[in-house]
Design a protein around this nucleic acid. Structure first.
Lengths: 218, 218
DNA sequence: GCAAATTAATGATTTATTCAAG
DNA sequence: CTTGAATAAATCATTAATTTGC
């Protein structure tokens, strides 16, 4: 448990365009989820936790020098730091997942992102992460369920429900664009977040990583 | 761990406008809308994503079976499929590593890649992976050594001090203009990692403490 | 009714493990 | 065997739905 890591605040500025969204989503099914929730009885003695929790409207960052230019239309939406998918986006993603898509490659992500971008702000990484997380969590869920149920053959997901033709060759030749033959991902380090910065005062829960000294290089 | 690897397949085209017709309304932050999403057979039904899905959902089960994809022509690549670092490149990377760099962020990777590019072909992801792997393997090595000795499986090649102007700041010390850099992401369509070391300018000297290893476990 | 406090869900990162080229 | 590349698991962090007390 000596593992320490660095935490950084991630404060991107991908704001989410609150445009269309259907009724609701993100239901909270009250799933029986175990949760530690320890130290609840610790009696924090009514400290002003609020200052710790969720600064909300205010102490967000505040570079005295760098004041955000109040862009008239893109106001910094004080909370929008992470992607918040719309119903349509989720629907499409789920459809794709059910269709069998597991880890889209760069091209696919590009397309998907472009498509989903019509329903809200989104970036490629959001798509990638979604698939990663969804896959992992479906697996967890299954595993949890399998405990209670002994058998549960878990027949394959109905991949047939989707009516789009999945004709796509299994190709692998990334001929023109990528230098590598096999699985090459498109990596590029392009833009970096121009978003302004938040002062370092948020050191609070950041831990520096101390990496053990390695005796020797190699 | 069910290791399943999916290959890129993909390449379909797609030039249609998506016709996802969904009646959607404004997002309501706190609207009590109960709804089981369940299979979400709703929405998104007319989205033609023909080219996304992989032909087969059967994700090659893991197993000692055939690993080869049927991509007969894939390989080729005269030069090799993966990065083959030169001595100079390794030297620089190790220097940086010893200097405390752990997981460079996008900017850093960009710089490093540019520098190392002078000595051979290299991409940003190679740099990224190198740090990831090096870190992980140093850790392994350490753990192994702490248990049962038998070290020194092989002598280490001299790191050869590089005397070029690979002088790039080992750490970012928010030198240029950004007060501090928090994190910048650079994503295109694949993931890329960032995470840098010095969160605040305080660390300008890049003095990371090297602590004796603690057998952390995880 | 509302807003703060809870809590489940989930987006985003980091770490560990695995696969395969050379 | 070494190690670049890739993926999965674990973890962290933040948001939204819900609860609760005025």
């Amino acid at each position: 448990m000596g593992n320490m890591k660095v935490h950084q605040l991630a404060r991107g500025f991908w704001e989410h365009e609150p445009s269309l969204s259907l009724g609701c989503k993100r239901l909270r099914p009250l799933a029986p989820k175990l949760q530690q929730h320890t130290s609840s009885t610790d009696t924090v003695s009514s400290f002003d936790l609020k200052s710790f929790i969720r600064p909300e409207s205010g102490p967000r960052k505040l570079g005295p020098s760098d004041q955000k230019r109040d862009s008239p239309q893109v106001e910094t939406h004080p909370g929008g730091t992470r992607w918040n998918p719309t119903q349509e986006q989720i629907g499409i993603l789920e459809m794709l997942y059910r269709g069998g898509m597991r880890t889209p490659n760069a091209q696919q992500i590009e397309k998907i992102t472009a498509q989903l971008g019509q329903y809200g702000k989104i970036e490629g990484k959001n798509v990638f992460y979604w698939f990663q997380n969804h896959k992992a969590r479906e697996r967890q869920k299954m595993k949890r369920n399998s405990l209670g149920l002994t058998d549960c053959p878990r027949n394959s997901p109905p991949i047939t429900t989707i009516t789009l033709e999945t004709r796509m060759e299994i190709m692998e030749r990334s001929d023109e664009d990528s230098p590598y033959k096999r699985k090459c991902k498109s990596w590029s380090f392009e833009y970096l977040d121009e978003q302004s910065i938040s002062p370092c005062k948020e050191q609070e829960n950041r831990t520096l990583e101390l990496f053990p000294l390695h005796p020797e290089g190699r």
